[in-house]
Computed example of a mutant assay.
Amino acid sequence: MTTSSAARRPRRFDPDRRERIVRACLDVLAEHGVAGTTHRRVAAAADVSLGSMTYHFAGMDDLLRAAFDAFATSVAVRFERRLAAAQGPDEAVDAVIAIITEEVFGTQRDLVLTHELYTLAARDPGFREVTNAWMKRSRAALERHFDAITTRMLDALIEGLAIHIALDTSPLDRDVVRGAVVRIAAGGTQA
């Protein structure tokens, strides 16, 4: 055994390394934004070598896509669960209200990650696949309870009101949210 072989760190068994890198990338994105996210920062946050980064991801776009796919999927799953639990039109309306007021941007981290994704997708059409897949899942969950036109309007309302709630310096009254959802949903609930 040579001296250099003995000095090498033993390989660690790490079957979840790729997922850990993706999670670390989301943390770095939330703290530094897309512009400040580098391979070095993500590798340090994930406690992996730079070589692991290039082994698992073809480049920064590949890493960002994997991270934003994971984020959008996690939000979509919460959205789907909330709507799947609704039994009937009244509960569907309540679920939409809860999604707006509690779920979509439940944390500052979610808000930041969402806006980073939106900005990236606005600049790079390749990332619109991520936002379109997210919207498709959201709309499919809404269509369990509402017609197609109402679904599109509710989807836009959810995004818009959630942004206002997250960024406004005055809290938005839950009754105002309820009024908006009820107005849109009034003509489009599924029986």
Rank of each mutant, 00 (worst) to 15 (best):
residue 153 M to A: 12
residue 98 A to M: 06
residue 106 G to P: 00
residue 77 V to Q: 06
residue 114 T to D: 08
residue 92 A to N: 06
residue 68 F to Q: 02
residue 158 I to T: 04
residue 66 A to Y: 05
residue 113 L to F: 08
residue 58 A to C: 11
residue 134 W to Y: 15
residue 68 F to D: 01
residue 132 N to H: 06
residue 125 P to I: 15
residue 123 R to H: 01
residue 74 S to L: 02
residue 58 A to F: 06
residue 142 L to Y: 02
residue 75 V to W: 04
residue 61 D to C: 11
residue 90 D to T: 14
residue 93 V to K: 02
residue 103 E to Q: 15
residue 158 I to C: 00
residue 160 G to I: 09
residue 146 F to T: 12
residue 113 L to R: 04
residue 160 G to T: 15
residue 84 A to W: 00
residue 147 D to C: 05
residue 148 A to K: 14
residue 130 V to T: 13
residue 160 G to Q: 09
residue 76 A to K: 01
residue 140 A to F: 11
residue 157 L to V: 12
residue 60 M to D: 07
residue 80 E to Y: 03
residue 105 F to E: 01
residue 119 T to L: 02
residue 146 F to L: 08
residue 92 A to C: 06
residue 151 T to C: 02
residue 127 F to A: 09
residue 141 A to Q: 10
residue 108 Q to E: 15
residue 80 E to F: 03
residue 95 A to P: 00
residue 102 E to S: 08
residue 135 M to P: 00
residue 104 V to W: 05
residue 80 E to S: 11
residue 127 F to E: 05
residue 143 E to R: 15
residue 102 E to K: 04
residue 98 A to R: 15
residue 74 S to D: 03
residue 82 R to P: 02
residue 73 T to V: 14
residue 128 R to E: 03
residue 146 F to G: 08
residue 140 A to C: 11
residue 147 D to S: 08
residue 103 E to V: 15
residue 131 T to A: 07
residue 120 L to A: 07
residue 96 V to Y: 01
residue 126 G to A: 15
residue 116 E to P: 01
residue 72 A to Q: 04
residue 118 Y to S: 15
residue 113 L to V: 11
